Amino acid sequence: MTNYYTPTGGLPPQTDLLTGRAVFTDAYAVIPKGTLRDITTSLLPGWDKMRMWVIARPLSGFAETFSHYITEVAPGGGSKSPETDQGAQAVLFVVSGHAELTIGDQTHLLFPGSYAYLPAGCDWTFANDHDAPCTFHWIRKTYVPAPGLPAPEAFVTQVSDAPTIEMEGTNGAWSTTRFVSPTNLSHDMHVNIVNFQPGGVIPFMETHVMEHGLYVLEGKAVYRLNTDWVEVEAGDYMWLRAFCPQACYAGGPGPFRYLLYKDVNRHMPLGLR
């Protein structure tokens, strides 16, 4: 079974050096796992026994299309009104523990590797009735309807049930686990898992319109972000602005995998709205 990195909070000792790997630039940001401490958590009204690390939020010059939380719900915790924005769609991806997600009148058991898509206006609740914390990624984006296309429907699946597509010519060194078909234009965001075997690379400097949020689930790599090479490992988060050049080398000795957000399938807004 894959072990996804899960933050636990805490504080470093007073004897530790202050030097870290956190970087915030106009083109990208790196939020290392060592910044996910108890004192950097937030709470939400309407939730019991939860805390979360906000690792991306809409902000001029940063994460303009989405927000990304790492949410920890203790035993007995949860919410009957988790989402207050009726225009917000969401993806939940569980990295540790168990919980029950209820969508309408259907309840789903969540466990590591569970993936849920929740459309805007969806009626859902979350409960951890188990004996250990449940930690999950919660990625939110305002849904942009498309004329003539229906809104996406809610679904729950698992990593093991999602297709993994090898990138052309890589012999499996680089692949993507896709939870939504790229040809389904009803969706205006994709949250996938990108997989590299040791030594796998992105063999060119990707430069494209999609904004990215990348959370490293497993392994380590050297990532090219704009003009810089940055070492990253499980638990680190990267935000890449649209058109930020990017590439990577997977460092081994095991696989390098990350949860990837990107905005897709819509016209570009023109001017201020």
Results as ranks from 00 to 15, higher is better:
S79M: 05
R57H: 12
G104I: 02
Q106D: 14
T125A: 14
P75R: 07
S96I: 04
P119E: 01
S42Q: 06
D131P: 09
P119H: 01
D85M: 03
A132R: 01
A116V: 01
M50N: 13
M50Q: 15
T41Y: 03
T102S: 07
S114G: 08
L59G: 00
E83R: 02
W124E: 03
G77Q: 11
E100V: 12
L44K: 13
L59E: 09
V30H: 06
V91D: 08
T135S: 02
L44R: 14
V91H: 06
S79A: 07
V94A: 03
T135G: 05
F111V: 05
R37L: 15
R37Y: 11
D105S: 15
H98N: 14
G61F: 08
P75H: 05
T125Y: 06
A56Q: 00
M50F: 05
H68Y: 15
I103C: 07
G61E: 11
T71K: 05
L59T: 10
G61Q: 10
G97R: 10
V73I: 04
F126Q: 02
Y69P: 09
F93L: 04
H108P: 12
T71V: 12
A116M: 06
S81I: 14
A116G: 01
V30T: 02
K141S: 11
L36F: 05
L59A: 07
V54S: 14
V94F: 00
G87M: 11
S96V: 03
F126E: 02
G121S: 10
S114V: 03
H137Y: 06
A63I: 06
T35D: 08
G61W: 12
I70P: 05
L92H: 10
V91A: 07
G121L: 06
D85I: 10
T135M: 00
G113E: 09
I55C: 08
I55L: 10
D129K: 11
G34M: 13
K49N: 13
T84D: 13
W138I: 00
H130T: 12
V95M: 09
E64G: 04
A99P: 03
T65N: 05
G121M: 06
F126K: 00
I31L: 15
V95A: 01
F126G: 00
S60I: 12
S81C: 14
S81W: 12
G78Y: 01
C122Y: 04
P58M: 03
